[in-house]
Nucleic acid binder design. Structure first.
Lengths: 245, 245
DNA sequence: AGCGAGTTTATGTATAGACATATCACCCGT
DNA sequence: ACGGGTGATATGTCTATACATAAACTCGCT
């Protein structure tokens, strides 16, 4: 349209991305604070001299990323600051250690297959009787203990797990590559090492440990429950968050 | 129309959502495993009797959610299993306690304003001299200590913080509502309580504690660094992940 | 065989127009 | 004042079409 800024920034290449980034920038710098009403689609389309669908695509993506909220008839608004959230990536331990450039070691401590007792069912969150596999193992990096794992697998939900050989491959890696999941829940807490943990991790009794408990489901059906214990002062979980790439 | 399955599932309401969910279901159940090529857009549009733009909208959203990968000329493919990742929501502590239905208490322990010393600059990650605010405070729930907070704020980046009154409102809440941020990094670890922490949290020396260290930036500029210490056996961080709603 | 140019193809972006739908704002009657 | 009906309006979905672009494939030349 006529104005000098028509050239705009070619930093994006495509129009809708330019629009999206322009709006994102205004939100992130605080120029448009939370609650602020963003111009209507027809205003933006006039401003950039494009069609409504193009504006709509930019705004839809921002809405999908939870940066803005759209209300029919009312308009589009900058969302109140979300909870400070972060994507916590908890990779397969073998891959994690490999990524650190250290030698991965794995040791199966015990394995059992049994009909689920009350404690197993409670832990997995299943009501009906089922068979489970119970596995304990240890991961190490450069021959230094890295984490202890205590896992239950619902063999009715994951029958293939009965055939898998966990003497060589850790169950976490096997499951991640063979079993699709739809929901996962992590709980992170801190404990002090008791005698068994101290011995397993080669640390002092009373040393702090980080505990991650993870439950995984597929379509509401429990698959596995795992408890990982890390030496707390040596291990850190790091999560980084960027406001939509 | 014509085919029996045209009725499909009205569970979505709109066509593109139906398409999106149909594909999502096939991926999540493993019917279309990682690496599998999804039908071409023209095939899907024939299958549902709709226009290409509608199919494209469904696929674009799945691509934005990282469930599929699209390659020109080659087609659309189911992505390999991502890292087991979870969105860890770390809310403002006041809101967190309020959500638990408990009474929030806040106590300012100490506050200082000074030119940043070497340790401050190291911790914030700034190189140039600047002024900082250093705040220590305690959060409690139902009069039971909940967390200790030790925070640095870069006053050059957040000049308004100099005027804020942290005697009544916790700095985390104030920052969350007044300062837009673009990047955050969390590190989670476990420690045992030393004497100062034990006294502050009213727990025993040697008890396990969960530590969250958070750094926040705006456009690469450090804003604040905070260290939160929680009683480790009472507090759990919970993160739940669903495969795109 | 090896290599480069041209062709094909699936996705990527954009358009103008249409109808649907949720809601807010206003007006009107009680 | 209050409640209900009604119209205006911004977003939500969808279509049919067009051209751009990147990458894989084909083919022919050396």
């Amino acid at each position: 349209m006529s104005l000098a800024d028509d050239s705009a920034k070619p930093g994006a290449g495509t129009l809708y991305k330019t629009i999206r980034q322009d709006i994102e920038r205004r939100i992130l710098t605080g120029e448009w604070p939370p609650g602020h009403r963003i111009p209507f689609e027809h205003e933006i389309m006039a401003r950039y001299g494009c069609s409504r669908m193009t504006v709509n695509k930019a705004l839809s993506e921002l809405a999908q990323a939870d940066l803005i909220e759209r209300r029919r008839r009312a308009g589009t608004f900058v969302r109140r600051p979300q909870f400070l959230s972060a994507v916590l990536k908890i990779p397969d331990i073998r891959a994690e250690i490999g990524a650190l450039g250290r030698a991965y070691g794995y040791e199966l401590i015990s394995t059992a297959r049994r009909a689920a007792n009350a404690a197993d069912r409670e832990r997995l969150g299943v009501k009906k009787p089922c068979k489970v596999a119970a596995i304990r193992c240890r991961h190490s990096a450069d021959n230094v203990p890295f984490a202890l794992e205590d896992r239950l697998i619902d063999l009715d939900a994951v029958p293939d797990a009965a055939k898998a050989n966990f003497k060589i491959d850790p169950p976490g890696s096997w499951l991640l590559h063979h079993v699709p999941w739809t929901e996962a829940e992590h709980a992170i807490s801190a404990i002090v090492a008791d005698e068994a943990i101290a011995e397993g991790l080669d640390i002092a009794v009373g040393a702090p440990c980080l505990v991650i408990e993870r439950h995984t489901w597929r379509q509401g059906q429990p698959l596995t429950a795992v408890r990982l214990v890390y030496p707390g002062e040596q291990h850190r979980l790091v999560a980084r968050f960027r406001g939509s790439e």
